[in-house]
Nucleic acid binder design. Structure first.
Lengths: 130, 130
DNA sequence: CAGCATCCTTATCGATACTG
DNA sequence: CAGTATCGATAAGGATGCTG
């Protein structure tokens, strides 16, 4: 896993990538359609969501169900393997949220130890053009 | 967590980022020095490792211990919060590795459903210039 | 609604040189 | 050894227009 040549590295990158983890987490409670997913995973663009879903489908974490009505409908759901991964991701999310007070406190203490200019921290999450 | 404006998103990105997760996982068993870490997290450059460690230190997941000998020595270790996060990450890693046969199988089946050209899959992990 | 193709901007990353 | 600073290549990501 720590080796670059290990095939699990690419799967890990899909699962833990910026969007992969959020998509898997969003699908945890149940199936979602493309735009539902897009609203849930706030900030993701159509292109990136498509890419992410394809990578996750290729790895067998996500299943794509095409419903050929009009307008077109596509439902994404977790496979058993994907669900087991999502379960652990959601546990990580919850744990991380629970630790946020400690994290924010650590960030404040870190900012004081060295004189970082107030704008140099990475608080940026992109422009509001989502 | 799924909202872009939530401060936990940046922490999540550090924890689940390409290198953040591997660094936290590598520090799980015990403290490591900079270059030990660099060897363990195969493929990471000096610059990126520095960046990653600084982000993790800022969030309070990693502690940096400077030992002012000659040559200079720095030991990185997990904080209690970092350890709890790393614990869950390592569980995820192990689970992911256990699922790799299923993942590789899914990738093969996916490649057959649509005629992806054999070289278009993302197997790239960069050149061998480590 | 769901997704592809294209262009273009921006961030990521790696190689190099230098400090302590 | 550990880390900073800078530069150039590359890849990720966003905006737009088009298809079914």
């Amino acid at each position: 896993m720590f080796a670059r040549t290990c095939p699990s590295r690419s799967a890990l990158e899909h699962v833990t990538g910026r969007w992969g983890s959020l998509v898997l987490g969003a699908l945890g409670p149940g199936p979602l359609r493309f735009n539902e997913l897009r609203r849930r995973v706030d900030g993701v663009s159509q292109k990136i969501l498509t890419q992410t879903l394809q990578a996750l489908e290729r790895d067998g974490f996500v299943e794509r169900n095409l419903i050929s009505t009009f307008p077109l409908r596509v439902e994404y759901s977790l496979t058993p393997v994907g669900a087991s991964v999502a379960h652990r991701l959601l546990a990580l999310f919850a744990h991380l949220e629970a630790q946020m007070p400690a994290v924010l406190d650590a960030q404040r203490r870190y900012a004081q130890r060295a004189d970082r200019s107030p704008t140099s921290g990475d608080v940026s999450v992109g422009p509001s053009s989502g």
